[in-house]
């Protein structure tokens, strides 16, 4: 009886996990309004010379923006403070693309570079006008 209960519990955990993954890994394309954009702020740590931190971060951003089919707005990449960078991508990313971009930026795609996404938000023209 205990063995059956253990199997049932394990199966329940697996099913719940699969359902969670299914909802989280969905790749539905939600069209965003024309003129929308997404602002991203990331904090990075490098195990290299700090002078190459910005270059490594640019490389990471260039890699990840390809995954979501978005381009970094020219001259939007800037250093907010030491180790914190901000940039803007167009067109604006929907919820699922934001998840993918966040995962890509936090992943270990560039050796010796760890990034944490502090903020990622999509701004539509209506949002911008309402400010």
């Amino acid at each position: 009886m205990r063995r059956v209960l253990a199997w049932v519990a394990g199966a329940a955990v697996v099913v719940a996990g699969l359902l969670l993954l299914r909802s989280e890994l969905m790749t539905v394309d939600i069209p965003q309004p024309e003129g929308s954009y997404t602002d991203v702020v990331i904090a990075v740590q490098v195990r290299e010379d700090p002078s190459v931190r910005e270059e490594m971060t640019r490389g990471l951003v260039s890699t990840c923006r390809l995954l979501v089919n978005a381009g970094v707005v020219e001259d939007s990449f800037r250093q907010v403070e030491a180790g914190v960078f901000a940039f803007r991508v167009r067109p604006g990313l929907d919820e699922f693309d934001r998840r993918e971009l966040r995962g890509c930026l936090r992943d270990t795609r560039v050796q010796h570079l760890l990034a944490d996404v502090r903020r990622i938000a999509t701004v539509t023209p209506d949002d911008a006008a309402g400010r």
Binding site: L21, E24, L25, R99, R106, D107, T108, R109
Partner: peptide, 15 residues
């Protein structure tokens, strides 16, 4: 493994 897949962090998930 589950957490990394959930977060879309494929490289970490592979490792």
């Amino acid at each position: 493994l589950f957490v990394y897949i959930y977060r879309w962090e494929w490289h970490r998930a592979l490792l």
